[in-house]
Design a protein around this nucleic acid. Structure first.
Length: 557
RNA sequence: GCGCCCGUAGCUCAGUUGGAUAGAGCGGCUGCCUUCUAAGCAGCGGGUCGCAGGUUCGAAUCCUGCCGGGCGUGCCA
């Protein structure tokens, strides 16, 4: 790859400059490259000379000139090297090198942009994991495309990724019991019995609907069942309904999981007790007020945390610690969780828990995404399961479609609040940026269809005269294609999938410009062949990007 | 109170680990379809990068202090 080559060559030039006495021996800054935003500054630039100037003294430009005089670049990659501004060294790719990229993509469209940074190491990515006390809300749904796109990015950079959804269904947890009690109250109300939803129960209409279904399916047979038995039956009933719904929502959103992990299995297998036992043995627990506590303050948390309540039930944290112990025990090299903003306070104690278990905390990362604020026009919609005014992910998908929703969710960095205007998203569906990108793909498909009909389909690589690609808009399209591998690597290593939506728009823009100014199908057979190959390469990269984002690549629009 | 996130064009947001003249989309105005899809392209207009200091060759980016918005701070999950 060109970047690695340039870094190597610069590093050699640096050594030679030192040998020649042009630079002092002791300076050894890291060599960093950047892509200038102004095309006149070339394709790749480095501020190495500026850094050297501040470390060793002297003028940036002079040091730049000296470095360049020691540069020994192989033929064919770089057309022009220039020292500019305060001392930047700018490299401009040669057309031959750029044309080689088109050849490379055409030769292996599916492999282009794949790297092996992960070296086949295994990684468990847990995301969404909405509580089984109601449908998936929009906020929680935000993690779907984030996790899915991140998984694809990591896979393309050599990681072996498993995707997992955690279901907090522990029967002895407070929220699960509260939900069953709410359903019970709604059930009794359906059958004309006096009953009221508990103080801290779930006010949402979806529980009423669930009670209606329950009456339809089971009639009044639970009216006189003993309380505990009834609650247990209602829990089983609602859990299945709700988890089925979560699975449907994820499928509708194009997000697939390798595994749905149930917290209840940890309690049943004794793993929760076992995890607490490990913490005790390692000296990270104590008893106070009848409860067992984790010494989280020893590990960076602000306060200690309860592991076992004074009534003997393990806390949510205890279950989650057991869960993460289970993840490590399954042999994953690394763990990544994506959590919603409401779990923010849980991060420190969870990391403390993992450390207390004795695992290397650097193998465990928690990514937090921020809230989604929904608007209807200018009015903000409140979202709280308990308050009942919940905007479900499924209704958003029905409203704006999965493609638009995914693109919108991935347009912003995850740590940024996301304002989503339902009316606007629906009304302006045709102006959504997702269509801009998809339209580029549809145009490409159209060209390739037309070419086929004219008997001029994409030619075999060896017969193509790539030197015919010389138009500035052709070359800038190729430049954009050339950035793809680095974009993927950056987005993956920095866990920033939103970079891909930005790249997709830039690539689409480069293509639309090319399309406007360069006619593909014409009388000049060699030119047509070269351009068809370029169009095919663009389609391949566009498909890869859309695959990562999880947005469809339509043949027609 | 404490902790985290955010504050960049009228609106919604990018900004490549500190670089060169701060960008995109939407909205506004003006051009471009007998030729592969005009859901496109080109142009115009739009900015005290929340405020004030500091660090240095260089700050939207790093540090400190303020101001504003959001979230968290349960023996809930």
């Amino acid at each position: 790859m060109a970047r690695e080559l340039i870094i190597e060559v610069l590093s050699e030039a640096l050594s030679r400059a030192k040998e020649a006495g042009d630079l002092p021996e002791h300076v050894d800054p890291p060599i960093e490259l950047q892509t200038p935003r102004d095309p006149r500054h070339g394709d790749i630039a480095t501020s190495l000379a500026l850094v050297l100037a501040s470390e060793a003294g002297g003028a940036g430009r002079q040091i730049g000139e000296k470095l360049v005089s020691h540069l020994d670049l192989p033929q064919g990659v770089i057309e022009k090297i220039e020292v500019a501004g305060p001392g930047f060294i700018n490299f401009t790719f040669s057309p031959e090198y750029l044309r080689g990229i088109v050849r490379e993509i055409a030769a292996g469209p599916a492999e282009y942009g794949r790297t092996n940074e992960g070296e086949g190491k295994t990684l468990l990515l847990e995301f969404v994991s909405a509580n089984p006390t109601g449908p998936v809300a929009v906020v929680q749904g935000r993690a779907g495309p984030l996790g899915d796109a991140l998984a694809k990015l990591l896979e393309r950079t050599g990681w072996k990724v498993s995707r997992e959804y955690y279901v907090n269904d522990a029967t002895n947890s407070t929220q699960v019991r509260r939900f069953a009690e709410t359903l019970e109250a709604r059930y009794l109300q359906q059958l004309g019995r006096g009953a009221s939803v508990p103080e801290d129960g779930y006010q949402g209409d979806y529980v009423v609907e669930m009670a209606e279904d329950l009456v339809k399916a089971e009639g009044d047979r639970y009216l006189d069942t003993p309380e505990e038995e009834r609650l247990s039956a209602f829990h089983d009933y609602s859990l299945k309904k709700i988890v089925d719904g979560h699975q449907r929502d994820m499928t509708a959103f194009g997000v697939e999981f390798d595994n749905w992990f149930f917290e209840s299995s940890l309690h049943a297998s004794g793993e929760v007790e076992a995890a607490i036992e490990v913490l005790k043995e390692r000296g990270y627990t104590y008893e106070k007020d009848g409860a067992v506590w984790l010494k989280a303050t020893d590990l960076g948390d602000e306060q200690d945390q309860v592991l076992v309540r004074n009534d003997g039930r393990p806390s949510y944290l205890a279950g989650d610690i057991a869960y993460h112990r289970n993840k490590f025990e399954r042999g994953f090299d690394r763990l990544i969780d994506i959590w919603g903003p409401d779990h923010h306070g849980h991060v420190r104690r969870m990391k403390a828990g993992v450390q207390a278990l004795g695992y290397d905390p650097s193998r465990f990362e928690i990514l937090l995404h921020q809230i989604v604020r929904l608007f209807r026009g200018s009015e903000m919609v409140r979202m709280s399961k308990r308050a009942g005014d919940i905007v479900q992910l499924s209704s958003l998908l029905e409203d704006v479609g999965a493609d638009a929703a995914r693109f919108f969710f991935l347009m912003q960095s995850m740590e940024s609040h996301l304002d989503f205007d339902l009316e606007l998203a629906k009304k302006q569906a045709n102006e959504n940026p997702v269509y801009y990108v998809q339209y580029a793909h549809a145009r490409i498909s159209s060209i390739l269809r037309e070419a086929q009909e004219r008997g001029a389909a994409v030619p075999s690589i060896d017969s193509v005269d790539f030197s015919r690609l010389e138009h500035p808009d052709e070359l800038s399209l190729i430049r954009k294609l050339a950035e793809f591998p680095d974009e993927v690597a950056e987005a993956a290593s920095r866990h920033e999938p939103h970079r891909m939506t930005r790249y997709s728009r830039e690539l689409a823009a480069a293509f639309h410009l090319f399309y406007t100014n360069c006619r593909v199908l014409g009388d000049d057979g060699d030119l047509t062949a070269a351009r068809l190959t370029l169009v095919g390469a663009t389609q391949a990269v566009l498909r890869s990007v859309l695959d990562i984002i999880g947005v469809s690549a339509p043949e027609t629009m």
